[in-house]
């Protein structure tokens, strides 16, 4: 059996795949969030940014392929680990009190599932335009798409809830991925995760800023 397959067969190997693909995801969401904030700079700024991205041609295709493969690997490994972890305790406790685990860590599976639904709907919404909650879509006018969609309360609500899920996912994930990869130095308080808190909070705030600003009329 090849080395890669043997590696992946173990739970640690799967966690390494989750950590690497998760870190790719974190890098992506930070970049994406920063780009979105151009909406505050007006229609020309974000539309020309979108134009610039599309003009990179092959590079954009490669980036998209990397992201899609990363999401697929991340989800497959998550599913396999979840099955293995559930099977490891066929009979649960009558009385079990979590002591120190965070809510974020205990919602990685359901929160992750919500993120998967979000990713699919979000692509259909803003990338392909198959979903038109506002009835209009134009590939050339990202700004217009944003304004039209985020005037609708339930679209804003769906994005807000999904971004809360993302924030929690990253609060645990940004911390655990580094540990899964064995990159962490010994720490007097290993459960401390300040950097992860900052990553989660910044990504969350940056992503919700645009829909909220549009909804309350600050933008558009």
């Amino acid at each position: 059996m090849s080395r890669a397959l043997r590696f992946y067969r173990s739970a640690i190997g799967k966690k390494v795949v989750m950590a690497v693909t998760g870190l790719i995801g974190i890098a992506f969401v930070i970049a994406h969030m920063t780009g979105n904030l151009l909406a505050f700079a007006g229609p020309e700024a974000i539309n020309s940014y979108s134009h610039f991205l599309k003009s990179t041609g092959e590079l954009l295709l490669v980036l998209r392929a990397v992201l899609i493969v990363a999401v697929i690997l991340h989800v497959i490994a998550a599913a396999q680990l979840t099955i293995q972890n559930r099977a490891a305790r066929p009979m649960g406790y009558v009385d079990r009190e979590p002591q120190v685990s965070t809510w974020a860590s205990r919602t990685m599976r359901w929160g992750g599932l919500l993120l998967l639904v979000f990713i699919v709907l979000h692509i259909l919404h803003f990338t392909t335009g198959d979903l038109k909650p506002a009835g209009v879509f134009s590939t050339a006018d990202v700004y217009g798409n944003i304004i039209a969609s985020f005037r609708i309360w339930w679209v804003v609500l769906f994005y807000l809830i999904s971004m809360i899920a993302l924030g929690f996912h990253l609060y645990h994930g940004a911390w655990s991925s580094v540990r899964s990869l064995g990159l962490r130095q010994p720490s007097p308080n290993p459960l401390q995760r300040r950097v992860a808190l900052a990553v989660a909070a910044i990504v969350w705030a940056g992503f919700v800023a645009v829909p909220v600003a549009v909804f309350v009329g600050l933008v558009g």
């Binding site: 739970a11 680990l81 979590p98 120190v100 685990s101 965070t102």
Partner: peptide, 8 residues
């Protein structure tokens, strides 16, 4: 099972 780093 595998490790999810719950810390428990």
């Amino acid at each position: 099972g595998g490790c999810t780093l719950y810390g428990e």
